[in-house]
Computed example of a mutant assay.
Amino acid sequence: MHHDTMFHTERTLLFSPKAVYNAFASADVLATWWGPDGFSNEFETFELQVGGRWTFVMVGPDGARYANQSVFTELEPASRVVIRHDCQPFFTLTVQLTQVADGTHLQWQQVFDDAHIAQAVKAIVEPANEQNLDRLMQALERFA
């Protein structure tokens, strides 16, 4: 795995792996936290199964609309979610959940197909991934 295509962040969440997984597995909850600060989501297709499609429009703070299409390539309840983003920019996101004493250790690994694109979006992606996990924590506090 090349460091120039991969972004990695991790965090310990004070919720069970099942609760964290469920924040991905419920379209209603996922729509509230997916993406960086200020974005909202309009889900079109959400098929939570291996090979299932997830298509949605991400709406930016300025009202700009970004079409997204992804496929769930691995789903292990309370353990692992792998999402293949199969439109530009192409990447695979692996979320690994490990039970720890005070909750769940979450590892978030985003690997871009193209190193040039990865470096071009690095300044956006790194803070966006942290904001995404902040929003996940907020959603867990509300819904879990």
Results as ranks from 00 to 15, higher is better:
residue 29 V to N: 07
residue 62 D to W: 04
residue 70 S to K: 01
residue 55 T to S: 15
residue 66 Y to I: 09
residue 64 A to H: 06
residue 51 G to I: 12
residue 74 E to Q: 12
residue 50 V to P: 14
residue 58 M to Q: 14
residue 33 W to S: 07
residue 44 E to G: 06
residue 31 A to E: 10
residue 30 L to A: 09
residue 72 F to C: 03
residue 35 G to T: 08
residue 44 E to S: 10
residue 45 T to Y: 01
residue 53 R to A: 15
residue 48 L to T: 07
residue 59 V to G: 00
residue 69 Q to H: 11
residue 59 V to E: 00
residue 24 F to H: 09
residue 66 Y to K: 00
residue 68 N to P: 04
residue 48 L to Q: 06
residue 31 A to N: 03
residue 57 V to G: 00
residue 57 V to D: 06
residue 63 G to S: 02
residue 71 V to P: 01
residue 74 E to N: 05
residue 60 G to S: 13
residue 40 S to E: 08
residue 45 T to M: 05
residue 25 A to P: 09
residue 51 G to K: 10
residue 65 R to T: 01
residue 66 Y to G: 00
residue 34 W to V: 03
residue 39 F to T: 09
residue 26 S to L: 10
residue 34 W to H: 07
residue 33 W to Q: 09
residue 55 T to H: 10
residue 42 E to A: 06
residue 43 F to C: 01
residue 45 T to D: 13
residue 47 E to A: 12
residue 43 F to I: 15
residue 72 F to G: 03
residue 65 R to A: 04
residue 46 F to G: 04
residue 67 A to H: 10
residue 61 P to A: 15
residue 63 G to T: 02
residue 63 G to L: 02
residue 61 P to L: 07
residue 37 D to K: 15
residue 47 E to N: 12
residue 31 A to K: 13
residue 41 N to C: 10
residue 73 T to F: 05
residue 63 G to Y: 01
residue 30 L to C: 08
residue 62 D to A: 09
residue 52 G to C: 10
residue 36 P to H: 11
residue 39 F to S: 03
residue 25 A to V: 10
residue 50 V to N: 13
residue 65 R to I: 02
residue 50 V to I: 15
residue 32 T to N: 05
residue 23 A to K: 08
residue 31 A to L: 04
residue 42 E to Q: 13
residue 63 G to W: 01
residue 46 F to R: 06
residue 74 E to C: 02
residue 28 D to W: 04
residue 43 F to G: 00
residue 63 G to F: 02
residue 52 G to N: 09
residue 44 E to H: 14
residue 48 L to Y: 09
residue 26 S to N: 14
residue 61 P to F: 08
residue 38 G to L: 12
residue 44 E to T: 08
residue 33 W to N: 08
residue 44 E to Q: 13
residue 57 V to W: 03
residue 23 A to G: 13
residue 40 S to N: 04
residue 26 S to H: 14
residue 59 V to P: 00
residue 37 D to L: 14
residue 43 F to H: 05
residue 50 V to D: 09
residue 32 T to D: 07
residue 30 L to V: 02
residue 36 P to S: 11
residue 29 V to K: 14
residue 57 V to T: 15
residue 58 M to K: 03
residue 58 M to A: 10
residue 60 G to R: 05
residue 72 F to H: 05
residue 38 G to N: 10
residue 61 P to C: 07
residue 24 F to C: 10
residue 50 V to A: 15
residue 51 G to C: 13
residue 49 Q to K: 15
residue 54 W to P: 04
residue 54 W to K: 03
residue 71 V to N: 08
residue 52 G to H: 09
residue 32 T to E: 15
residue 66 Y to Q: 05
residue 43 F to Q: 00
residue 71 V to L: 15
residue 68 N to T: 05
residue 66 Y to H: 15
residue 27 A to F: 01
residue 27 A to D: 07
residue 49 Q to S: 15
residue 54 W to Q: 07
residue 74 E to V: 13
residue 72 F to S: 03
